[in-house]
Amino acid sequence: MKIAITSTGNSPEAKLDSRFGRCSFFVIYDTVSHSTEFIPNPYIENIEGAGLASANLIASKGAEKVVSGEFGAKVKSLFDSMKIKLVILKDPEKRINTIIELLNH
């Protein structure tokens, strides 16, 4: 299964980005191959619609779960309709590799 995580940087030591639509990087983690892919968020400078555009990007990568600090109302309903599960982690100090460890429970 593929899981998307919002990240502040492009390394596993980077911390979780608490914003969804305007995070710096998306990490796509594959639980089967244990591979990670870092994608710079192309919508970070969007005046509007960054959340929805990011959600569609994540869906196109085939992620079934998204981990972030917060999701807006529009994004929530879009993810619901695409059957993508949301995880809210209110801990901006968590590192990407820690989250990946948690996911490998």
């Binding site: 779960k65 981990v67 993810f79 619901d80 059957k83 993508i84 599960k85 949301l86 995880v87 809210i88 982690l89 209110k90 801990d91 989250i99 948690l102 996911l103 429970h105």
Partner: peptide, 22 residues
Amino acid sequence: CGCWFNHTEKGQKIDQCTLCGS
């Protein structure tokens, strides 16, 4: 792990955390 998570299938019982499996 202190996270919040949802699940998209209404009415389906959830018994473990999506993130850490607790």
